[in-house]
């Protein structure tokens, strides 16, 4: 009874119109970023630039100190990659041990992680900041990687534990009979089997770390090491209504994540819809 009728076609056209209106902000973003300085106020804000130019991107890439976008970009890449590495390694190891163990403590530890997911992070930031300041971890890229890994570890463990529960033990048993030790079983057999879970963890954690502003503003504030969102914040604060330069920075910050998204959109959407369900 559900057939493609004229009304369905109308619905489809209507949805496309809605989508185009919904994405209108991206048109403003690109049009403004391509305007040379002389056109910011002389042309209508709705119009496409008369002489599109990339000069605003040159301005954006020349920021110094706190507002150094290139430095921020490199730091963001290192932090995101480092945190993903830590979350995959620690998350997989911990999730594996607590979901395979039948002992009672593993159940308690699982709940320890589950509660930590719900625990609001705001309250912990003040003592964490003071602790990190005392041992000199503020303003350091490595300190941020440790911090992000710890903050997102409950989510990572939760996702891995869910996948391990659904995975039979046959492969591990076969490997053990063939004489593999526990370390070999884990790294040669279990971890490769876990690649779907690793993908979900990497996407969710990568997005959260890459887009994070609050944590990096607090822990890196005032230092030379900024992440992309923080250097964007400081640079834009210094550009009063110079919208073409502001939007050049915004585009630079968006391109890496959008490329990833369009390249692996199915995995992204499944990661969000399935990963956060549990």
């Amino acid at each position: 009874m559900f057939r493609y009728t004229k009304r369905t076609a109308l619905r489809e056209i209507g949805l496309w119109v809605l989508a185009l209106v919904f994405l209108l902000p991206f048109y403003f973003l690109i049009a403004m970023a391509l305007k040379p300085d002389s056109e910011i106020y002389s042309t209508s804000t709705l119009a496409w630039p008369q002489h599109p130019s990339l000069e605003s991107f040159a301005t954006a890439l020349n920021g110094q100190g706190n507002a150094d976008i290139v430095h921020g970009l490199i730091n963001s890449i290192i932090m995101t990659a480092g945190s993903i590495l830590g979350l995959v390694l620690l998350g997989a190891l911990t999730g594996y041990v607590i979901s395979r163990s039948t002992r009672r403590w593993s159940r308690g530890v699982y709940y320890l992680f589950l509660v930590a997911i719900v625990l609001p992070t705001q309250l912990g930031t003040v003592p964490l900041y003071i602790g990190a300041r005392t041992i000199g971890l503020t303003g350091s890229v490595w300190g941020m990687i440790v911090l992000y890994t710890g903050m997102l570890l409950p989510l990572s463990i939760f996702l891995y534990a869910g996948f391990f529960r659904g995975l039979g033990t046959e492969y591990e048993e076969a490997a053990a009979i063939d004489g593999a030790n526990r370390t070999q079983i884990f790294f040669r057999i279990v971890l490769p089997l876990m690649s779907p879970a690793t993908g979900t963890v990497a996407i969710l954690a990568g997005l959260i770390v890459w887009n994070d502003f609050f944590t990096s503003l607090i822990f890196l504030g005032g230092s030379e090491n900024q992440t992309l969102p923080v250097s964007m914040y400081f640079f834009i604060g210094s550009l009063v209504s110079k919208w073409n330069s502001i939007f050049a920075i915004v585009i630079i910050s968006m391109v890496p994540i959008l490329l990833f998204y369009l390249f692996a959109q199915k995995k992204f959407i499944q990661g969000f819809a399935g990963g956060l369900k549990g």
Partner: peptide, 23 residues
């Protein structure tokens, strides 16, 4: 057996420190 129980230790310490103690 599946791994060693102490494999879970770094994760447990990190979560207790960053989530529970800090909170």
């Amino acid at each position: 057996s599946f791994g060693h129980w102490w494999w879970a230790l770094p994760g447990i310490v990190l979560v207790i420190g960053i989530h529970y103690v800090a909170t």
